[in-house]
Design a protein around this nucleic acid. Structure first.
Lengths: 109, 109
DNA sequence: TAAAGCTTCCTAGATTCTCTACAGGAGATA
DNA sequence: TATCTCCTGTAGAGAATCTAGGAAGCTTTA
């Protein structure tokens, strides 16, 4: 019983990759961006975000390096690798497939 | 690494409720119907389906009774309860919210 | 200068859902 | 009788996310 809506499982990776398509960014920035882009609907919890970033980096879809944020704080900047770009395309088209299929069912009378 | 696409986690309950909106049905029938309605894209595994049916019945969204299928086999027929109908409406609108938000993000340039 | 708050990173543990991989009965068909 | 298909079910595992923390450094305010 909660107020806030959870993410749809399986979409977080795609959203992160998509955010990074706009340019390198640190974790905190990604979560803010996703919230803004979704008009406050999607809220990525930090306990979800950071493990996801590891996953993605381990799989070679992201690379990271330490730097300094706009606010003069230490921050780890992530960016898409070429493999990550490819993965984004794949996940996007899979999302289209699945959400289309679900909508097909929901529209049935 | 698999060929077949998994479901989006969190949507199975909604799909089952939706299928039962068309009338009472047994488990096996539900899985066939979902496959057909989605044009063969969505495939509900039996190991996912039956536990889900229990979950839903336990929460009072479905009721069941044993009967005989069109093929003269013993089958458990499920149907929506009023609470289940309500739940379907809720899950559907939540799906709209989330998928809209995700599409918002994917369309960003 | 002390306190408080925000930014940023991170981890542990639990939960929830779905999948794979089975098992088995019972009618239909040959 | 053998085999096929329909239909129900269970066990165990794995993946993704959540809750609920902790910590450190900068910045603002008292």
């Amino acid at each position: 019983m909660k107020e806030k809506t959870d993410l749809l499982q399986g979409t977080l990776d795609m959203l992160i990759l998509k955010a990074l398509q706009l340019g390198p960014m640190h974790g905190f920035g990604i979560s803010v961006l996703i919230r803004q882009m979704s008009k406050e609907v999607l809220q990525v919890e930090q306990g979800s975000l950071y493990p996801a970033l590891y996953r993605l980096e381990e799989q070679g879809w992201l690379s990271s390096e330490w730097g300094t944020s706009e606010n003069n704080r230490k921050a780890k900047f992530y960016k898409l690798t070429p493999a990550g770009r490819k993965q984004l395309v794949e996940e996007t088209s899979n999302w289209e497939r699945l959400s289309t299929a679900i909508n097909l069912i929901l529209k049935t009378t």
